[in-house]
Protein backbone atom coordinates (compact mmCIF):
# COMPACT_ATOMS: atom_id res chain seq x y z
CA UNK A 1 0.00 0.00 0.00
CA UNK A 2 1.15 3.50 -0.81
CA UNK A 3 0.94 6.06 1.95
CA UNK A 4 1.65 9.73 1.73
CA UNK A 5 5.04 10.20 3.28
CA UNK A 6 5.44 13.92 3.91
CA UNK A 7 4.39 15.62 7.10
CA UNK A 8 0.63 15.97 7.41
CA UNK A 9 0.80 19.31 9.19
CA UNK A 10 0.57 21.14 5.84
CA UNK A 11 -2.13 18.83 4.53
CA UNK A 12 -5.47 20.40 3.67
CA UNK A 13 -7.40 17.25 2.93
CA UNK A 14 -6.61 13.91 4.51
CA UNK A 15 -8.48 10.78 3.46
CA UNK A 16 -7.88 7.52 5.30
CA UNK A 17 -8.80 4.08 4.08
CA UNK A 18 -11.76 5.13 1.93
CA UNK A 19 -13.77 2.16 0.67
CA UNK A 20 -16.88 2.14 -1.49
CA UNK A 21 -18.72 -0.85 -2.92
CA UNK A 22 -21.56 -1.06 -5.39
CA UNK A 23 -23.13 -4.45 -4.86
CA UNK A 24 -20.26 -6.90 -5.20
CA UNK A 25 -18.04 -4.46 -7.04
CA UNK A 26 -15.42 -2.71 -5.00
CA UNK A 27 -15.10 0.73 -6.57
CA UNK A 28 -12.72 2.06 -3.97
CA UNK A 29 -10.57 0.00 -1.68
CA UNK A 30 -8.53 1.45 1.16
CA UNK A 31 -7.69 4.68 -0.61
CA UNK A 32 -5.66 7.09 1.49
CA UNK A 33 -4.62 10.52 0.31
CA UNK A 34 -3.14 13.62 1.77
CA UNK A 35 -3.41 16.78 -0.27
CA UNK A 36 -0.93 19.50 0.68
CA UNK A 37 -2.35 22.95 1.17
CA UNK A 38 -1.75 25.28 -1.77
CA UNK A 39 -0.91 22.57 -4.27
CA UNK A 40 -2.41 21.23 -7.44
CA UNK A 41 -2.98 17.55 -6.79
CA UNK A 42 -3.56 15.28 -9.74
CA UNK A 43 -5.67 12.13 -9.66
CA UNK A 44 -5.14 9.88 -12.66
CA UNK A 45 -5.85 6.33 -13.67
CA UNK A 46 -7.43 4.29 -16.44
CA UNK A 47 -11.16 4.48 -17.12
CA UNK A 48 -13.19 2.88 -14.37
CA UNK A 49 -10.38 3.16 -11.84
CA UNK A 50 -12.65 4.91 -9.33
CA UNK A 51 -11.54 8.54 -9.72
CA UNK A 52 -15.03 9.98 -10.05
CA UNK A 53 -16.30 7.68 -7.31
CA UNK A 54 -13.66 9.10 -5.01
CA UNK A 55 -14.76 12.61 -6.00
CA UNK A 56 -18.35 11.74 -5.24
CA UNK A 57 -17.37 10.41 -1.83
CA UNK A 58 -15.27 13.48 -1.03
CA UNK A 59 -18.11 15.82 -2.05
CA UNK A 60 -20.82 13.94 -0.18
CA UNK A 61 -22.75 12.60 -3.16
CA UNK A 62 -21.85 9.06 -2.11
CA UNK A 63 -21.29 7.97 1.43
CA UNK A 64 -18.09 6.00 2.03
CA UNK A 65 -18.58 2.44 3.28
CA UNK A 66 -15.26 2.60 5.04
CA UNK A 67 -12.72 5.17 6.04
CA UNK A 68 -12.77 8.81 6.99
CA UNK A 69 -11.73 12.11 5.49
CA UNK A 70 -11.20 15.54 6.87
CA UNK A 71 -10.60 19.05 5.61
CA UNK A 72 -8.40 21.35 7.68
CA UNK A 73 -8.73 18.99 10.62
CA UNK A 74 -12.50 18.87 10.47
CA UNK A 75 -14.12 15.52 9.71
CA UNK A 76 -16.46 15.55 6.72
CA UNK A 77 -17.13 11.82 6.56
CA UNK A 78 -20.78 12.10 7.55
CA UNK A 79 -21.62 15.44 6.00
CA UNK A 80 -24.18 16.08 3.24
CA UNK A 81 -22.89 17.58 0.02
CA UNK A 82 -24.20 21.05 0.80
CA UNK A 83 -22.48 20.98 4.18
CA UNK A 84 -19.24 19.84 2.57
CA UNK A 85 -19.48 22.74 0.16
CA UNK A 86 -20.12 25.14 3.03
CA UNK A 87 -17.07 23.78 4.84
CA UNK A 88 -14.83 24.37 1.86
CA UNK A 89 -14.86 21.76 -0.93
CA UNK A 90 -16.37 22.89 -4.22
CA UNK A 91 -16.48 20.79 -7.34
CA UNK A 92 -17.21 20.61 -11.04
CA UNK A 93 -18.65 17.64 -12.89
CA UNK A 94 -17.30 15.43 -15.62
CA UNK A 95 -20.52 15.92 -17.58
CA UNK A 96 -21.04 19.62 -17.07
CA UNK A 97 -23.92 20.32 -14.68
CA UNK A 98 -24.84 23.95 -14.97
CA UNK A 99 -28.22 25.51 -14.30
CA UNK A 100 -28.66 25.50 -18.05
CA UNK A 101 -31.55 27.91 -18.44
CA UNK A 102 -30.22 30.53 -16.06
CA UNK A 103 -27.75 33.16 -17.23
CA UNK A 104 -24.03 32.83 -16.60
CA UNK A 105 -24.04 35.44 -13.87
CA UNK A 106 -27.06 33.85 -12.16
CA UNK A 107 -25.20 30.54 -12.09
CA UNK A 108 -22.31 32.18 -10.27
CA UNK A 109 -24.69 34.02 -7.95
CA UNK A 110 -26.17 30.67 -6.92
CA UNK A 111 -22.62 29.73 -5.99
CA UNK A 112 -22.51 32.79 -3.71
CA UNK A 113 -25.66 31.58 -1.92
CA UNK A 114 -23.73 29.75 0.72
CA UNK A 115 -21.72 32.85 1.70
CA UNK A 116 -24.73 35.18 1.86
CA UNK A 117 -27.68 35.38 4.19
CA UNK A 118 -30.75 37.29 3.11
CA UNK A 119 -33.91 35.22 3.42
CA UNK A 120 -37.53 35.35 2.41
CA UNK A 121 -38.41 38.33 4.56
CA UNK A 122 -35.48 40.33 3.27
CA UNK A 123 -36.50 39.53 -0.29
CA UNK A 124 -40.15 40.49 0.23
CA UNK A 125 -39.41 43.73 2.04
CA UNK A 126 -36.32 44.58 -0.06
CA UNK A 127 -34.52 45.63 3.10
CA UNK A 128 -31.45 47.83 2.62
CA UNK A 129 -29.23 45.01 3.92
CA UNK A 130 -30.70 42.69 1.31
CA UNK A 131 -30.12 45.19 -1.48
CA UNK A 132 -26.50 45.80 -0.51
CA UNK A 133 -25.91 42.07 -0.33
CA UNK A 134 -27.55 41.53 -3.72
CA UNK A 135 -25.35 44.24 -5.20
CA UNK A 136 -22.25 42.70 -3.65
CA UNK A 137 -23.25 39.30 -5.08
CA UNK A 138 -23.55 40.74 -8.56
CA UNK A 139 -20.20 42.50 -8.28
CA UNK A 140 -18.45 39.39 -6.99
CA UNK A 141 -20.08 37.16 -9.61
CA UNK A 142 -18.96 39.50 -12.38
CA UNK A 143 -15.42 39.52 -10.96
CA UNK A 144 -15.35 35.74 -11.02
CA UNK A 145 -16.65 35.62 -14.59
CA UNK A 146 -13.91 38.04 -15.56
CA UNK A 147 -11.39 35.94 -13.66
CA UNK A 148 -12.19 32.78 -15.61
CA UNK A 149 -12.31 34.83 -18.81
CA UNK A 150 -16.02 34.87 -19.74
CA UNK A 151 -16.98 38.22 -18.26
CA UNK A 152 -18.45 39.38 -21.56
CA UNK A 153 -21.00 36.51 -21.51
CA UNK A 154 -22.51 37.39 -18.11
CA UNK A 155 -26.05 37.72 -19.38
CA UNK A 156 -26.04 34.80 -21.75
CA UNK A 157 -28.02 31.69 -20.97
CA UNK A 158 -25.61 29.07 -19.66
CA UNK A 159 -26.68 26.32 -22.03
CA UNK A 160 -26.06 28.45 -25.06
CA UNK A 161 -22.44 29.14 -24.16
CA UNK A 162 -19.75 27.33 -26.14
CA UNK A 163 -18.55 24.13 -24.52
CA UNK A 164 -15.25 25.50 -23.23
CA UNK A 165 -16.99 28.50 -21.69
CA UNK A 166 -19.46 26.21 -19.94
CA UNK A 167 -16.49 24.46 -18.30
CA UNK A 168 -15.14 27.84 -17.20
CA UNK A 169 -18.53 28.89 -15.92
CA UNK A 170 -18.70 25.76 -13.80
CA UNK A 171 -15.32 26.66 -12.34
CA UNK A 172 -16.52 30.21 -11.64
CA UNK A 173 -19.62 28.88 -9.89
CA UNK A 174 -17.47 26.59 -7.75
CA UNK A 175 -15.08 29.43 -6.91
CA UNK A 176 -18.02 31.59 -5.85
CA UNK A 177 -18.48 29.38 -2.80
CA UNK A 178 -15.03 30.52 -1.54
CA UNK A 179 -13.67 26.98 -1.41
CA UNK A 180 -10.46 25.88 0.27
CA UNK A 181 -10.30 22.91 -2.07
CA UNK A 182 -11.51 23.04 -5.65
CA UNK A 183 -12.18 19.59 -7.08
CA UNK A 184 -12.24 19.48 -10.88
CA UNK A 185 -13.46 16.38 -12.68
CA UNK A 186 -11.79 16.29 -16.11
CA UNK A 187 -11.99 20.00 -16.85
CA UNK A 188 -10.05 19.62 -20.11
CA UNK A 189 -12.24 16.87 -21.54
CA UNK A 190 -13.25 17.74 -25.07
CA UNK A 191 -10.96 20.74 -25.30
CA UNK A 192 -8.40 21.29 -28.03
CA UNK A 193 -4.72 22.02 -27.29
CA UNK A 194 -5.11 25.79 -27.20
CA UNK A 195 -8.10 25.64 -24.89
CA UNK A 196 -6.30 23.15 -22.67
CA UNK A 197 -3.29 25.44 -22.43
CA UNK A 198 -5.53 28.37 -21.45
CA UNK A 199 -7.21 26.17 -18.86
CA UNK A 200 -3.77 25.25 -17.47
CA UNK A 201 -2.97 28.94 -17.02
CA UNK A 202 -6.33 29.48 -15.30
CA UNK A 203 -5.67 26.65 -12.86
CA UNK A 204 -2.25 28.10 -12.12
CA UNK A 205 -3.93 31.46 -11.43
CA UNK A 206 -6.45 29.81 -9.10
CA UNK A 207 -3.65 28.10 -7.24
CA UNK A 208 -1.82 31.42 -6.87
CA UNK A 209 -4.97 32.93 -5.38
CA UNK A 210 -4.59 30.45 -2.53
CA UNK A 211 -7.07 27.73 -3.49
CA UNK A 212 -5.86 24.14 -3.42
CA UNK A 213 -6.88 22.09 -6.45
CA UNK A 214 -7.71 18.41 -6.79
CA UNK A 215 -7.69 17.51 -10.46
CA UNK A 216 -8.91 14.44 -12.29
CA UNK A 217 -7.51 14.56 -15.77
CA UNK A 218 -6.74 12.28 -18.67
CA UNK A 219 -4.52 14.73 -20.46
CA UNK A 220 -1.19 13.45 -19.13
CA UNK A 221 0.74 16.42 -20.46
CA UNK A 222 -1.51 18.81 -18.52
CA UNK A 223 -1.29 16.77 -15.35
CA UNK A 224 2.47 16.31 -15.47
CA UNK A 225 3.10 19.97 -16.28
CA UNK A 226 0.73 21.39 -13.72
CA UNK A 227 0.49 19.13 -10.71
CA UNK A 228 2.70 19.30 -7.67
CA UNK A 229 1.81 15.76 -6.74
CA UNK A 230 -0.03 12.96 -8.48
CA UNK A 231 -1.92 9.91 -7.23
CA UNK A 232 -2.69 6.98 -9.50
CA UNK A 233 -5.76 4.78 -9.05
CA UNK A 234 -6.31 1.40 -10.65
CA UNK A 235 -9.28 -0.88 -9.92
CA UNK A 236 -10.16 1.29 -6.94
CA UNK A 237 -6.72 1.01 -5.39
CA UNK A 238 -4.01 3.60 -5.04
CA UNK A 239 -1.01 2.19 -6.91
CA UNK A 240 1.36 5.15 -6.89
CA UNK A 241 1.66 8.59 -5.32
CA UNK A 242 4.31 11.26 -5.48
CA UNK A 243 5.93 13.89 -7.63
CA UNK A 244 4.87 13.68 -11.29
CA UNK A 245 8.36 12.81 -12.52
CA UNK A 246 8.63 9.86 -10.15
CA UNK A 247 5.11 8.61 -10.75
CA UNK A 248 5.57 8.70 -14.50
CA UNK A 249 8.42 6.20 -14.27
CA UNK A 250 6.78 3.91 -11.73
CA UNK A 251 6.59 0.44 -13.33
CA UNK A 252 3.16 -0.19 -11.87
CA UNK A 253 1.81 2.99 -13.42
CA UNK A 254 3.30 2.10 -16.79
CA UNK A 255 1.78 -1.35 -16.49
CA UNK A 256 -1.63 0.08 -15.57
CA UNK A 257 -1.66 2.35 -18.58
CA UNK A 258 0.02 0.12 -21.13
CA UNK A 259 -0.64 -3.35 -19.80
CA UNK A 260 2.01 -5.87 -18.69
CA UNK A 261 4.12 -8.00 -20.96
CA UNK A 262 2.86 -11.53 -21.26
CA UNK A 263 5.58 -13.83 -20.07
Amino acid sequence: MIEATYSSSSALLIAKGIGKRFGGLSALDQVSLSIPSGSIYGLIGPNGAGKTTLFNVLTGIYRADEGTFELDGRSLTHCRSDQICTLGIARTFQNIRLFGNMTAIENVMVGRHVRTHSGILGAILRLPSQRTEEQAMITRAQELLNFVGIGQHANQVARQLPYGDQRRLEIARALATDPKLLALDEPAAGMNDTETATLGRLLQKIKESGVTILLIEHDVKLVMGLCDRVAVLEYGRLIAEGKPANVKNDPRVIAAYLGTEVS
Partner: peptide, 8 residues
Protein backbone atom coordinates in the same frame (compact mmCIF):
# COMPACT_ATOMS: atom_id res chain seq x y z
CA UNK B 1 -27.32 17.53 -7.55
CA UNK B 2 -25.47 20.56 -8.86
CA UNK B 3 -27.50 22.72 -6.49
CA UNK B 4 -26.51 20.61 -3.50
CA UNK B 5 -22.90 20.58 -4.59
CA UNK B 6 -23.03 24.36 -4.80
CA UNK B 7 -23.88 24.41 -1.12
CA UNK B 8 -27.64 24.84 -1.29
Amino acid sequence: IAAKSSGL
